[in-house]
Design a protein around this nucleic acid. Sequence first.
DNA 1: ATCTACATATAGACAGCCTACATGTAGACT
DNA 2: AGTCTACATGTAGGCTGTCTATATGTAGAT
Lengths: 110, 110
Amino acid sequence: MNPDALRGHMDALLLSVLEREPLHGYAIIEALQQRSGGVLNVPTGTVYPALRRLERIGHLSSEWATVGGRKRRTYRLTDSGRRQLQGERSAWREFSDVIGSVLRAEAVTT
Amino acid sequence: MNPDALRGHMDALLLSVLEREPLHGYAIIEALQQRSGGVLNVPTGTVYPALRRLERIGHLSSEWATVGGRKRRTYRLTDSGRRQLQGERSAWREFSDVIGSVLRAEAVTT
DNA sequence: ATCTACATATAGACAGCCTACATGTAGACT
DNA sequence: AGTCTACATGTAGGCTGTCTATATGTAGAT
């Protein structure tokens, strides 16, 4: 998976994974792997900064928890994040329609 | 259309538009607009450098022509470019499947 | 003791898309 | 003659988000 391809779609992925339930960073990475059938291996250096960015702009909130002696920062969607996710979903649909139609295009009669 | 979303997909778009016939930069921009139903308005500052990059790495070749007193640089796919386009197409299919499945995911029973 | 999985975090590199600007021709209209 | 729009190419520099590499530490298995 070409890294650049993810550009601008990371937010949608992260918000989407958090839609159902709050998760901490490590679990988010695992969830992405699982949901993508093992294809998406997003490095921690991508995910953690992205989560902080999303929190900074208000789409996520976080809190620390200690589970089994390990500290986790658990992220959850805010209302704003939920709205953002809807926007990301429709943006994705438009985007994939457009790219798909260009890549598949047969000569459009003008 | 979020600019960052295009990242890493520009090559596929350009190669795809040139698959059928050679075109010059300006015509490529128009073709992208047309094929996308007016959604894709790729600025010249994106297209011209990208075309040069694709030529540099051997996926395109170009030649100057003068039509109606205007100079055009016409780009055409090389064999390497044609192969690359096939790769871009399958990469796009995988990419859009993956993103789509994450965005649409209902709880996957583990 | 050592190794692997779990867990978070940051610094700096890198690449590519964008804005803004520069340059010039052709043709229509006033 | 002057202005405007469409056609046509190009570069410099900014921006930003993803990646690599590194750092730190706990828990549990071998």
